[in-house]
Design a binder for these strands. Sequence first.
DNA 1: ACAGTTTTAGTTCGATCGTTCTAGAATGCA
DNA 2: TGCATTCTAGAACGATCGAACTAAAACTGT
Lengths: 221, 221
Amino acid sequence: MQRDANDGKMPATGKATGDGMARPREFDERTVLDAAVQCFWSRGYGATSVRDLMQSTGLTGASLYNAFGDKRAFYQKALDHYVDGSISDRIRRCEQLPPREAIGAFFAEILKRSLEDRDRKGCMLVNAALDLAPHDAEFRTAVAAVLGRIEDFFRRRIEAGQAEGTLARSLPARDLARHLLGVLMGVRVLARVRPERALLEGVIAPALALLDEQPGPEEGR
Amino acid sequence: MQRDANDGKMPATGKATGDGMARPREFDERTVLDAAVQCFWSRGYGATSVRDLMQSTGLTGASLYNAFGDKRAFYQKALDHYVDGSISDRIRRCEQLPPREAIGAFFAEILKRSLEDRDRKGCMLVNAALDLAPHDAEFRTAVAAVLGRIEDFFRRRIEAGQAEGTLARSLPARDLARHLLGVLMGVRVLARVRPERALLEGVIAPALALLDEQPGPEEGR
DNA sequence: ACAGTTTTAGTTCGATCGTTCTAGAATGCA
DNA sequence: TGCATTCTAGAACGATCGAACTAAAACTGT
């Protein structure tokens, strides 16, 4: 979706249209999106006004509407920007670790972020999942796709761990991955109401124990 | 908090104040709160206008403000009403079952409700947890208290099951209860984006398996 | 230098927001 | 029957919402 690879120094080309090139943008799209993410992330979609966005980005309304479309489209782009910079990056970093470490590191990072999150913004994707997705099919599809990528990350690591014998085989990787996805959502929700280390560790620990569990020679009754 | 025990037939006394009793209410408080719950539940706090509430309840603005205070207070009362009729009732019903059945029935009910929830309203408490609680200390306390009651329900049942040997003792009841609370939140979130039976069952099943797990004679390494 | 295009800044629009106000209607108690 | 009180209905309030409009400024390509 990004048009230029301007690394954040000067104006940026904008989109190169047609014949006579005209006045270039005075703002850096990445910086503006960062500011928009902060707004939408902390206040939610409905509670963020276009005027809030104008103040946070330093742009006027006309500039925002010109560059990003209406409020909903702007949120869409801000969410994409957040996912790219936060979730995709985390998956990319964790998926090249050994199975058990990958999942442990993933949740360790979530735990850390949740406890450091002083203004209780939570995860912008989870917020979008409850704020916009239920009543907007387009957002629902987009959010579901990202959740699917997280689920796939879990499943691939679990399958690898089960194959090499470092992770429990007592349950199918498919279900374990779904379980971890659910726990992840749960942590993100609980952290916004009760951001207590003991609580969140208590939520996560059994899920990890489930991965490590020894089958026990005598099974089933 | 409720003042009268009017069982939903006629006007209701309202509050009995001072000297000369005056004109009694024409509406039934419970019916009005039911309508308000539907509104706030499906649209959220911010997206529900007072005019929406007027239409759904059939009352005029003045009546609403007279009887329930401002919009925030009205939401507060609607949320209380929801919790009383939905969550408290579920806990009350499940906690008198045997430990494993109590937890199984609890999640079976959540699963059923989530899959039948065609307009993806989710759980009003979870919605409140992400909508209002993060930025409103009073709501945060209230939501946290209800979450604490759910957690306590889990813990008491797990402790009972561990004591009688029907539930796994490999993890402390405290953590298992927190884990179940997290999974519950996760299911409620995921259901609003991907209300698929296979997904939600996949989230829940490993948590239940964790409770049933046989320790296996040789443990720890 | 000129033409063409796009960005800026600020104003303005109609709609809707939460809330309050002005009436009048209805009731209990003296 | 009157008085006090609380209900109802609906209009109205100022504020703010998302979005569009009007010009002026800034830049590129020829």
